[in-house]
Design a protein around this nucleic acid. Structure first.
Lengths: 171, 171
DNA sequence: CTGAGACTTGCGGATTTCGCAGGAGTGGCG
DNA sequence: CGCCACTCCTGCGAAATCCGCAAGTCTCAG
């Protein structure tokens, strides 16, 4: 068994190479490990090793490296509404000037969970998690709109979370 | 030690009660466990127990229940761009008629990672993960726009993911 | 009063984690 | 070509963790 995987390893033997934006290039084995952990973040290293054709120790090292590099994180995720955060919103932002600077400023805010730079009628999308309406209002109006370079914002308050998955590769 | 936690437990002794929408109500201890696992999804049960003032066995039982109930999942998360998915987008959708039906239909699509119903100028927001432009175009134009009741859509193609966190409660 | 539920303590045995000592393949360099 | 540095893998014990289970306590609800 596992002959395919082992055989293919020698063929693609570079791994720690970096692409131009600094993100490490992942080989098929690391992808396989990630896929396993996307199904179950607590799956034992030995089981993963069996699945991808590696020894337990090798899997452990690769997982550790993936974590250190920041390519992957193993965490518990929930629906924030279940955990006592009453208000969530996606905020679309238009920027004049340095878009990335705004994105960085958003990144530093604790209430901001998710920041992505986009093409389209918004320059930046940010997801916000708050305790209540006052808190949400405060973050959007006082903090985000106050950032120099923010031209306008539009808010989408969450009513109900319907889906949340982390299993690319599994398909 | 741990006298505070133990003392407080008797005060809030309901736990398996359900709120009206079917999501279980979480007490402070479960919140604490989730918080621990948001920092590190592989943290040992004994360590969690020490942090929240529970025995190892009790933590194990609670974690298992939280997973079974679907309140929480322990998984590996990555930036899809580093894992070979070239194109991602957020799609805002306007619906006429049953909004929830559209949301459910989106939920069934494998390429759709994240679905949320919102208030604002969009009724539904959906995050899409695709392999390339063709794939993305196909999903948006052929599949989403084809859903009966979808009035219009607007897409925001991702340029760069700046932040992705899962640590509410830690603040 | 009685039963149900949740937690604790304690306990082995199976499993997993973790650190470390090799071995093998690769790339750089004189 | 030979040597070295580097990276990745494997193998192996020792330590820690996981897991199931049983017995006892406590509190709440009926």
């Amino acid at each position: 068994m596992q002959s395919d995987v082992v055989a293919s390893r020698s063929a693609e033997h570079r791994d720690s190479r970096e692409s131009k934006n600094g993100t490490p290039q992942l080989d098929a084995v690391s992808l396989g490990i990630i896929e396993q952990l996307q199904e179950d973040g607590r799956r034992p290293y030995a089981a993963i090793g069996k699945a991808v054709g590696l020894s337990e120790a090798a899997v452990r090292q690769r997982v550790q490296k993936l974590l250190d590099q920041g390519v992957m994180q193993i965490v518990a995720v929930t629906d924030p509404l279940t955990v006592g955060f009453r208000r969530q919103a996606m905020v679309g932002i238009n920027v004049e000037g340095d878009t990335e600077a705004i994105a960085d400023a958003l990144t530093d805010m604790a209430e901001v969970e998710y920041v992505v730079m986009t093409a389209g009628s918004f320059d930046v999308l940010a997801e916000i998690v708050c305790e209540d309406d006052d808190h949400l209002l405060d973050v959007i109006n006082k903090r985000i709109r106050a950032l120099p370079g923010v031209r306008s914002t539009e808010s989408f308050v969450y009513l109900k979370l319907k889906k949340q998955t982390y299993m690319w590769g599994t398909r």
